[in-house]
């Protein structure tokens, strides 16, 4: 059973998650089909910036986050931004979109100058997230858990971060049991995605390098 306290925590995170989305006008521009390689690159860069801003606004509303040391807040966001963005993109990608939209989006990513060997694991990840059929609560909590990972570089007060992450993991675990009573491995599968995200984060650093070379 989910306690009242856990309910409050979950609702606060869900509310923040749903309130902070990429602005519609920015998202819409992704679907305009005429663009040069340079325009594509600039738009994707702008999207990424917008995603980081949205991510920070969401994170500020995670109960307890702003009570952490300021430099630790930055270290956590810096260490998790790429992973949180991949999670959010996966959800956008798996959402039911009007016919053709997914293709336009996929085309853009493929034309971004990222080499195929990096794109493949990314789309595989999107697919594996889609297969989980997460509820909005699970998505929001998983993102919060990702951001509040204590072992990011430059985080000083690991214990303080752990104290925030632990209750979120507990609620997430309970939710998984309630939502997926016939899948005892569901929670473990969610955690497995976090490992996959770590690899993508590592890939991302290489993508940046290859982009610079290009």
């Amino acid at each position: 059973e989910i306690t009242k306290e856990q309910q409050v925590l979950m609702q606060a995170i869900l509310k923040a998650y749903e309130r902070h989305q990429i602005p519609q006008d920015v998202a819409k521009r992704l679907l305009h089909d005429q663009y040069s390689a340079e325009e594509n690159f600039l738009l994707l860069t702008e999207m990424a910036t917008s995603q980081v801003q949205v991510l920070v606004e969401f994170t500020k509303n995670i109960p307890g986050f702003l009570s952490l040391d300021h430099e630790d807040q930055i270290a956590l966001l810096k260490g998790s931004a790429v992973e949180a963005m991949f999670l959010r993109s996966a959800q956008v990608f798996n959402r039911k979109t009007p016919a053709g939209h997914t293709e336009v989006l996929e085309e853009r990513i493929r034309k971004s100058g990222i080499s195929e060997e990096f794109i493949k694991p990314m789309f595989n990840f999107y697919k594996s997230i889609g297969e989980l059929l997460m509820s909005p609560e699970e998505q929001a909590l998983l993102t919060a858990v990702t951001i509040l990972t204590p072992d990011r570089p430059y985080v000083k007060d690991h214990a303080a971060v752990e104290r925030l992450q632990e209750p979120m993991l507990e609620v997430l675990k309970k939710l998984c049991t309630l939502h997926h009573p016939h899948e005892p491995q569901y929670f473990a599968r969610l955690l497995g995605r976090l490992t996959e995200l770590r690899s993508l984060n590592h890939y991302h650093a290489e993508i940046i390098t290859s982009w610079r070379v290009n």
């Binding site: 980081v52 801003q53 949205v54 920070v56 807040q73 930055i74 810096k78 931004a81």
Partner: peptide
Amino acid sequence: PASNLGLEDIIRKALMGNLEE
């Protein structure tokens, strides 16, 4: 790396500011 600095700048600004205002 410069890319990380860019990310950090965006984070610092967003942490200080308030998009909702």
